[in-house]
Design a protein around this nucleic acid. Structure first.
Lengths: 135, 135
DNA sequence: ATTAACTGTAATAATTTTTATTACAGTACA
DNA sequence: TGTACTGTAATAAAAATTATTACAGTTAAT
């Protein structure tokens, strides 16, 4: 998961916080971020599926926060964009080797513990708290 | 950092633990892992730089653990292979937007906190503890 | 001293992942 | 009925990751 999605999603949400309850277009958001508007739409669409954004189609449409920033935790954002483990991918080892045969089970357990620790830390931060220093 | 390096490094170390103090060749390790021997050598070479492996060149050479498995923490392994943040990359936002101008500073702070939480969790596990269940 | 079996490392090719671009159907407002 | 949006898919471009090949340098054994 070496991509820009968490950063992108959080930028989108932060911008919405900054702009109060204004409806924002993907074009506008893309401008703040220097990325393509289609990418913003793809991500807002995803965030909507996770209940963080509401969107309105058609003329005068756009997106807003689905709930108060104090009720959005950064772990929610993480879960919305999460693809693979933060510790990376696993090999497909040789099953004829005792270590190769068993290691991925242990790695799964470990990866889960490590990720959980990180996610707990993210859960301790609300969108509001994150946005506060940005004036 | 969506790669296989942490998994690879931990596999290498686990195999050494499993094989006691035997000197292992990159060919042997690669066989357990279904990867190329040159990749194993690249990683053992890196682990050596971080003091986790000792290696011996020439005929009869190979690698061994540099210290007892109980003295190796999985955070050491993480630090040896770490490249980018586990939360991914950041955008290069528009500096003419107030949010775009400030967000990366806040993201840096957040990314560091999140990563630290994960690394602390890894530090709580020794190589020995990780390897124990692998018979 | 020569050969064989290793590590270390670099160059480069192949593959996979990520991001950008383009296009257009569908929706809503004026 | 036109205009301004979102949603989404297809595809191209770029970047990151992994595999392969090659070979110099080292050590041990004969």
């Amino acid at each position: 998961m070496n991509n820009v999605r968490f950063s992108t999603a959080l930028h989108i949400l932060t911008l919405h916080y900054y702009m109060k309850d204004e409806m924002l277009t993907s074009e506008f958001v893309a401008g703040s971020m220097n990325v393509n508007a289609a990418i913003v739409r793809k991500e807002t669409s995803n965030l909507r599926k996770f209940g963080l954004i509401t969107s309105k189609e058609g003329k005068g449409g756009g997106t807003t926060l689905a709930k108060p920033a104090k009720d959005i935790r950064l772990s929610d954002v993480y879960n919305a964009v999460r693809q693979t483990s933060p510790l990376g991918k696993k090999n497909v080892p040789n099953p004829d080797c005792p270590v190769g045969k068993q290691i991925n089970v242990e790695l799964d357990v470990l990866y889960n513990k490590a990720e959980e620790a990180m996610v707990s830390r993210l859960a301790a931060v609300t969108l509001e708290a994150f946005c506060k220093p940005i004036k």
